[in-house]
Write a protein that binds this DNA or RNA. Structure first.
Length: 425
RNA sequence: GGAGAGAUGGCAGAGCGGUUGAAUGCACCGGUCUUGAAAACCGGCAUACGUUAAUAGCGUAUCCAGGGUUCGAAUCCCUGUCUCUCCGCCA
């Protein structure tokens, strides 16, 4: 949610920044709502104040045994007037909320202005895409060689966009997860969390998935949501908290499955593990002092990169343009890993500074000893990394001509020292 | 799933439908006292919104949440959520 004060003080400026993000705010309509709100609120509160005063007088009169009737007459008309005024004010508030809940965060100044992913800007690359002296297989074909990846079985169980992994590939995915968690915990200073995979609508609203993106999430019969990312439960851990400033920064990591409807992506990445309804992810979330959020974003991006470096997977970092950023983000770096079979880089991590956008929605604040008034924290989240896509990247980048897959060195301890994944004998 | 109990400020814990944002204690902050500390004493100590240049005043709201009764609700009624105890079931 944007700062409502900002919408009052600098409406044209906000409208312009929203336009950069592809959101057209009807400035006139908003201004007229705001004008009505102000008049109505002042009226309502003044009526309320009058009634309270008279009611108190009635109490006193009664206590002294005086005649209350004149006072009762005086207050008689007030009630209806107040009810009307209140109702009108509530309508205005509701109407305004229907706008504000749908306003995306404003982009930082250094975010490139653009329409879509074509306008994203490459920041840096790491590693060199491997060359193969044979025809490369994609991860689906590699999975077929070992027989440890079974989309058909998954389709029978659940439909499209699911995968069954078995044996060494299942183990490799687990190894990746463990390695990522261990690295973030031991090298990067995150605390490990285990969180619910079902959350309520408040949590989804707090981190910005609701109300706008309800169609992207799976909802249960009793109104809960399967988490689309661990960002939702992790970030909401500080919802409605007033933290001590020395508790910051809070750095959390968790491994969870993620569930996404992938509504609107029909026909995209239908083959293989790129785009699934269910995938595992190791997530990083930081809750920081506002002045430190930009540095934290750089750090967090590096933390995600360190995983790829350790796995020796070539990647590049791009900054998303205003048109391609997520709803809650003020600035986002995507990390894209080299996918040999597609001869291109594909997203494997997204690291965002949401500034106070989520914090305002979920009322996550902190207080310093010097300052009386609590301030909103800044929140950041980043994938570190999407495990399924990492698995796919390892398979393709580490493939041999015969379809076997070398196990990256850092994963070998997690694989019982195994160095190559082969077809089962 | 069944039966019962409960939800009040950072914590503990009062609160006949009437000047209650809410007693009291603890914690915390400031002061007096003291060589220093403790004790004692004095004072302070919620959040949000509106208005405003203002984190000054003033107004409004908030005693789990949402409705209702009433001139007036922490207090009465309804619904929901959560917590606890017992039983059942269960990884």
């Amino acid at each position: 949610m944007l700062d409502p004060q900002l919408l009052r003080d600098n409406l044209p400026g906000v409208a312009k920044k929203l336009a950069d993000r592809g959101y057209q705010l009807d400035v006139q309509a908003w201004q007229s709502l705001e004008d009505r709100r102000k008049a109505l609120q002042i009226e309502t509160e003044s009526l309320q104040s009058q009634r309270t005063q008279i009611s108190k007088s009635i109490g006193q009169a009664k206590a002294k045994g005086e005649d209350m009737q004149p006072l009762l007459d005086q207050v008689a008309g007030l009630g209806d007037q107040l009810d009307q005024s209140k109702a009108a004010l509530q309508d205005i508030f509701a109407e305004m909320e229907q706008v504000t809940l749908y306003l995306p965060n404003l982009a930082q100044e250094d975010v490139p202005v653009g329409q879509d992913e074509a306008d994203n800007v490459e920041i840096r690359t790491w590693g060199t895409p491997p060359t193969f002296d044979f025809a490369v297989k994609d991860h689906v074909d590699l999975g077929a060689v070992s027989g440890f990846m079974d989309a058909e079985a998954a389709a029978t169980l659940s439909g499209s966009r699911f995968t069954v992994l078995s044996r060494d590939l299942a183990r490799l995915q687990r190894a990746l997860t463990q390695f990522m968690l261990d690295t973030h915990i031991n090298e990067h200073g995150y605390d490990e969390f285990y969180v619910p995979y079902l959350v309520n609508d408040q949590a989804m609203l707090g981190s910005g998935q609701l109300p706008k993106f309800a169609d992207d999430a799976f909802i249960t019969e009793d109104g809960r949501f399967l988490i689309p990312t661990a960002e939702v439960p992790l970030t909401n851990l500080v919802a409605n908290h007033i933290l001590d400033s020395d508790a910051l920064p809070i750095k959390m990591t968790a491994h969870t499955p993620c569930f996404r409807r992938e509504a609107g992506s029909y026909g995209k990445d239908t083959k293989g593990m790129i785009r699934q309804h269910q995938f595992d992810k190791v997530e990083m979330v930081q809750i920081v002092h506002p002045e430190e959020s930009n540095q934290a974003l750089e750090d967090m991006t590096n933390h995600a990169e360190n995983i790829l470096k350790a796995l020796k997977l070539p990647y590049r970092v791009i900054i998303l343009c205003t048109g391609d950023m997520g709803f809650s983000a003020a600035k986002t770096y995507d990390i894209e890993v080299w996918v040999p079979a597609q001869n291109t880089y594909r997203e494997i991590s997204s690291c965002s500074n949401c500034e106070d956008f989520q914090a305002r929605r979920m009322q996550a604040r902190f207080r310093t000893p010097e300052q009386k008034k609590p301030q909103l924290v800044h929140t950041l989240n980043g994938s570190g990394l999407a495990v399924g896509r990492t698995l796919l990247a390892v398979m393709e980048n580490y493939q041999n001509q015969n379809g076997s897959i070398r196990v990256p060195e850092v994963l070998q301890p997690y694989m019982g020292g195994e160095q190559v994944i082969n077809r089962a004998e």
